[in-house]
Nucleic acid binder design. Structure first.
Lengths: 137, 137
DNA sequence: TATAAGGTCTGTAGCGACCACAGGCTCAAG
DNA sequence: CTTGAGCCTGTGGTCGCTACAGACCTTATA
């Protein structure tokens, strides 16, 4: 006898397909407490609901925006945290935004150096290379 | 009797101080074949020379420029590779430069989204937050 | 010369955020 | 009843380090 399934219940593979999340990643998120443990069928299969879809979408979107898991935990009020206030969310976002801007600045500096040194290259089949000289000095 | 030491020979700690590299990282680079195995004293202490300093500086600089270890191996002609030609170095650098530019573009998109959503925040001590809405939708 | 402090040695485990696989169940279709 | 797909668990790998623990060696001071 199959377990009862409501309209919006699904197994792990379907959740993965629906969200575009890797199927193993879903298990990982459960393991680290980002996704609530879903109920199981009598055979041990995970049964997900619409709430899981929403939560997983949130996590994925936050990850796309570069938030670390710890940040997302904070945004979701997970662990022993209470649901965050707007002020807390803003503070976290501003911190992250500052990080992102720092990373952009770092990468731009790198880009400039790479572009400048690569421009010096002859591209010839010779062992001497101005890029190697630039890095090595 | 202490082992003979030439002027420019040094132990691991001094190499670390001299280059600013973490002392454990030096051992790691040796383990993965980025630094040649140094000779040892009779007690097993590693003895580094000026060549090691040069090589380590090169690696550190390349890492600062965001090259992956595999790239650096290529730049150095390590493993079973021959020393690269200028053309090969240029190709590798151009590929990496393209990567860096992609990352910058990604981060800029993230920055725009974060800045736009954070701007909507009231910063009040209330649980409703436009940032959460933006991520969640 | 004894001892204490500090450097070095090895192996191993941890980080973050996953991804992939092996070996065993379960389920649905034909 | 069999086949194949999907799910289960545990474990190990990725990258580039970093941080121990516990043993050994060296150096300086008393």
């Amino acid at each position: 006898m199959p377990d009862h399934e409501t309209e919006s219940s699904m197994k792990r593979g379907e959740l993965a397909r629906l969200t575009g999340c890797n199927i193993e990643t879903i298990r990982y998120y459960e393991k680290i407490g980002m996704l609530p443990d879903p109920p199981r069928t009598s055979a041990g299969y995970r049964v997900y609901s619409r709430d899981h879809v929403t939560r997983l979408h949130f996590i994925m979107r936050a990850r796309e925006l570069g938030f670390a898991m710890e940040d997302i935990r904070g945004l979701l009020g997970l662990g022993d945290r209470a649901a965050p206030t707007c002020a807390e969310v803003k503070a976290r976002t501003d911190r992250h935004l500052a990080d992102v801007r720092t990373k952009i600045a770092d990468l731009k500096r790198i880009e400039a150096v790479l572009a400048a040194t690569a421009a010096k290259c002859s591209g010839a089949e010779v062992p001497e290379c101005p890029v190697l000289d630039a890095i090595g000095s």
